[in-house]
Amino acid sequence: MKWRKVVRILHRDFGYLAFGLTIIYAVSGIAVNHTSDWNPNYVISRDSLKIPPTRDSSLSKEEMVAYVITNLNEKDSVISSFKSSPMVVDIFFDGKSYKADLKTGRIKAEIVEDRAVIRQTNYLHLNAPKKIWTYVADAFAVILILLSVTGLFMIKGKKGITGRGKWLTVLGVLIPIIFLIIYF
C-alpha cells in the first residue's frame, strides 16, 4: 500500500472518531472564551420582590425565614438560610435564592438555571470529571495532532502541501506567532 493511501485512511477514520469531541471542544471553546461577558454554564436571572416591612429586630433567623416565605406564599422547600445582618436574611432553595431586607421589605431574587448542552460541553472541555476523562482528552489531543499532520499530505499537486497548501500552512503558523509578538 502506498504511504499516501495510508495517510488518507488514517485521516478519514480518525476524523470520524474525533468528530464528536471536536464539536464539544469547539462549542465550549467559544463559550469559555467570553467569560467576561457571560457565565458560560448558567443563566442567572434577577428579580425584585416586596413584602410588608417589619421593625422587629429581635427575630431569629428561623423566624425571619418564616416571615419571608409566609408573606411570599412560597411553596418551594428551603434548603438553608443565612442571617447576614440583624435585618437581612438569605434564603436558599434549589436553584433559587432570596436576599430579604426585612426593614425595607425589599427582596432580591436570583434564579440560576443550567445553560443546556453548553454546560455539559464545558464540563468535559475543562476536564471537570478528571480521572479517566483526562486520558480520553489526551488521546483526543494526540488524534488532533495526527489529523493535522496527515491533513498536510493527503493530496499532491498544485493543491497539496507543495502548492497552495504550503502558503495556507505558513499563514496558519504565522497567525499565532504574530499575536504572540504583539501581546506576549
Binding site: Y42, I44, I79, F92, V112, L126
Partner: peptide, 24 residues
C-alpha cells in the same frame, strides 16, 4: 450569624458552580 469567609481559588483551576448557593 453575620459571619462568613471568602474562599478564593486560582481562575480556571477550580470553577465553583453558580447553583452551589445554599449547599454545604
Amino acid at each position: 450569624d453575620y459571619e462568613s469567609i471568602t474562599v478564593k481559588v486560582n481562575d480556571g483551576e477550580i470553577v465553583f458552580p453558580a447553583d452551589a448557593k445554599g449547599k454545604t
